[in-house]
Design a protein around this nucleic acid. Sequence first.
DNA 1: CTGAAGACTGCAATCAGTTGCAGTAAACAA
DNA 2: TTGTTTACTGCAACTGATTGCAGTCTTCAG
Lengths: 320, 320
Amino acid sequence: MSVTIRDVAHASGVHVSTVSRTFSAPHLVNAETRTRVLAVAEELDYRPNRAARSLKTGRTNNIGLIVPDLANPFFSSLIKAAQAAARRQDYHLFVADTDENPSEEEELILAFSKQVDGIVLCGPRLSNKALEKLSESVSFVLVNRLIRGLTTVVMDVAHGARVAMEHLAGLGHRRVALVTGPAGSWTSGEIRRAVAEIPGLDAVVIGPNPPTEEGGIAAAARVAEAGVTGVLAYNDLLAIGIIEGLEALGVDVPGDVSVIGFDDSATGRLYRPKLTTVAMPAGAAGRMAVDLLIQSMSAATVLETHLVVRDSTAPPKGTA
Amino acid sequence: MSVTIRDVAHASGVHVSTVSRTFSAPHLVNAETRTRVLAVAEELDYRPNRAARSLKTGRTNNIGLIVPDLANPFFSSLIKAAQAAARRQDYHLFVADTDENPSEEEELILAFSKQVDGIVLCGPRLSNKALEKLSESVSFVLVNRLIRGLTTVVMDVAHGARVAMEHLAGLGHRRVALVTGPAGSWTSGEIRRAVAEIPGLDAVVIGPNPPTEEGGIAAAARVAEAGVTGVLAYNDLLAIGIIEGLEALGVDVPGDVSVIGFDDSATGRLYRPKLTTVAMPAGAAGRMAVDLLIQSMSAATVLETHLVVRDSTAPPKGTA
DNA sequence: CTGAAGACTGCAATCAGTTGCAGTAAACAA
DNA sequence: TTGTTTACTGCAACTGATTGCAGTCTTCAG
């Protein structure tokens, strides 16, 4: 039905191996022959069958990308950049989300493993041990999770958290809440650790929470009860949910309580009050992860974060 | 290196064809043999090589999904649902975005075509002719584009546009702007056509526009000049951009001008003022498209839309 | 007791490319 | 003139699974 290498070989009077070589190792075939074969291939509209190729070579030119939540705008930007990077190098990108579920994550890795050259794992929730085990059968790049010996791209969230806290302290806040993300999240742990080390700031930890708007709304009551004037949330969605929930309780943001998010997503940038947030280089991370995978380099890359101050933070009341 | 059907066959004392059948046609093999083979396969951690399978069968169990913009939240929900639907049936999903570029769209279709069993094309910008041509070599499901003879899932945007306009009319608005989307967009055309048929409402068309926040900001000036009290925008992002732009010009929403979007995205739902918008069933569309593709049914499916009234619309000034 | 049907199972060709090896011809060196 | 190198090109085995066909063994009817 579809045109194969054999059809092209026949139509151009050469052996199949020559046709194969004009595509996969052009320098090995005579220039004249090559142009003839290419012309015939073009005319017959020949396209190599990737299944056959990868059967023989063991390489697929496919990459898998697994994220906790496809609908989270942070991951959308990451995916967009990753896809563009993959495409530039003639790779195709599978995507899947785990719904924050570690066992689904493992399932997906196993399902992908025979069909890709590598997997970009974003914010994996599996244990170190499980990941190390799995990395024996398929190559990984981890995004926002640091494990010795595995290739990683991480964002410096600890730095971001410190700067965010300094911003709050600078405004005069003394007692703040840290609203953490999902239990298995490495970044959430990093932020928590970084905040714990900051002197002179009284930080209460509220979490774990699902990293969604709903999670934020649910956490708002506990924030209100905690007697804090500032909040650092695990991500923008959670921050927005907290603001929604707080305002429903009659607490004004930033009048009564200041709120800072993480991500610098479009949703947060457009929200009112415009969200003060720690910018995370999602696109750069997606691009780098794919490039590292394709070059099959192993490296630990750290990407910088920075604070974007907008309208959801202000001095605490009575500081006038 | 990796364990094949042959290893399993050898270890369980049967021929490879029997192992093959225990996986792809279990009813053809003796129950006892089957359990033994499955046990051995499990123990050796055997996983079928999809490349080999698809080489022989011609089916890949992969689906391609092409959207204009991966970062647009409307498509994020669609992708999430599509991925879940695919996964339920042991299919994997490739994604790619065209950046609103028709020629890139064609490139992607061609690149995918040898590697998938079908492609879900969301809001394609290619011409009918080009799409019909391409549909000869790979099967499609079109989302939000109606072409005779091709399988489609469309949302009833015309109905949504009418209801939105009635809402504005009901509030007392008489002169409104229709801010359209990209030039090649079928839905944008549908909305425009539907609005043109509404009697007693003076509608000026502003467009085409890139369907992004930036596009909306850019269009805001023309909206302000048009002397309208109401706006219907092609999507939520555009609507939000318009509001941003309008407010920068000192025009209050909804005080001076009411704005309605399309999509009911999270971004719009969370925005302040909370966006009045036409809800589009993105998830349902993604799910249906994938299901239609896998069942390889051809059908034209219409999904309902409805208006969600929030805070970005109000009576025009002077109606008190 | 024979024949036929049914239930498995094995054999081997096949899918569409890739690649190590060998063969050929021309170019070049001695 | 002969030997050697270089540049292609062809041959055929190989990748891992699928599947039509044929063979074996029971089982059961007549």
